[in-house]
């Protein structure tokens, strides 16, 4: 087996830690922190909403780094990382969008609006969905890895651009929590001590979950390649 015992142990430890952290985070979200004055229980969505966005951002960031590293080194392991990270990142950004919709319905009185923030996250989702389409569309493996790396970089450029749009045109109704205006959070809820504790704990938890899921996804990809290779060997012998 290609993997060292030590690495497998670290992965299993992280997996269990992620499960425990997730349970703790959910307990905190529901019991430690109280409902917010104006937004009521719906405000509790915010913890997983922002944390899952952090997860997707980390995953897509890893995909860009992997894309650059692949184009430089041509080591297929970077492509595996990029592919895995994009898949997990897509899942997390879906969570961000869906939880955001559930929050927006009672607070903004609509499931969806073309606010700059919502637009930029949709563009991000579409760009990485297109990345997956590109991968399935190219047959030659070497070319697929190369094109996927290039597209991951281009897609991230467009994501960066949409983030800049928000800074230039701050006509957003989306509450700003993190970013340049961290000193005084705008929006209708104030960040109290308990809310901050819960938020940071959730962000930490989702970071660990992202790492664990990407890692497992990479192992799945490697396993799949080994099985395919072995299959060719056996079929050639027959």
């Amino acid at each position: 087996m290609a993997y060292s015992e030590k690495r497998t142990k670290i992965l299993m430890g992280l997996t269990y830690a992620a499960a425990v952290l997730f349970v703790l985070a959910m307990l905190m979200n529901f019991f430690y922190v109280g409902p917010e004055r104006q937004q009521g229980e719906a405000q509790r969505i915010f913890y997983v909403h922002l944390s899952s966005f952090l997860g997707s951002f980390l995953a897509f960031g890893a995909a860009v780094v992997a894309g650059i590293a692949y184009l430089r080194s041509r080591n297929p392991k970077w492509d595996t990382l990029g592919h895995s990270a994009v898949e997990i990142g897509l899942g997390f950004s879906t969570i961000t969008i869906v939880t955001g919709m559930a929050w927006a319905r009672p607070i903004w009185n609509t499931w969806w609006t073309w606010d700059p923030r919502l637009t930029s996250v949709t563009i991000m989702w579409l760009a990485y969905a297109a990345y997956m389409m590109l991968r399935t569309g190219i047959e030659d493996p070497e070319r697929r890895r190369r094109f996927a790396a290039v597209y991951a970089i281009v897609a991230f450029a467009s994501v960066l651009y949409t983030i800049i749009i928000i800074r230039v045109r701050p006509d957003t109704i989306h509450p700003v929590v993190a970013g340049p205006t961290q000193a005084e959070p705008e929006g209708s809820f104030e960040v109290s001590g308990r809310i901050r504790d819960t938020l940071f704990f959730n962000m930490f938890t989702f970071t660990v979950i992202t790492v664990v899921l990407v890692w497992h996804r990479i192992r799945l990809e490697n396993f799949s390649e080994r099985v395919a290779r072995r299959k060719m060997e056996v079929l050639a012998d027959l």
């Binding site: 937004q39 009521g40 229980e41 939880t99 559930a102």
Partner: peptide, 11 residues
């Protein structure tokens, strides 16, 4: 509390 159904939906 208020809006609990949306919170449940989101989670």
């Amino acid at each position: 509390g208020k809006y609990a159904e949306y919170m449940i939906l989101g989670y």
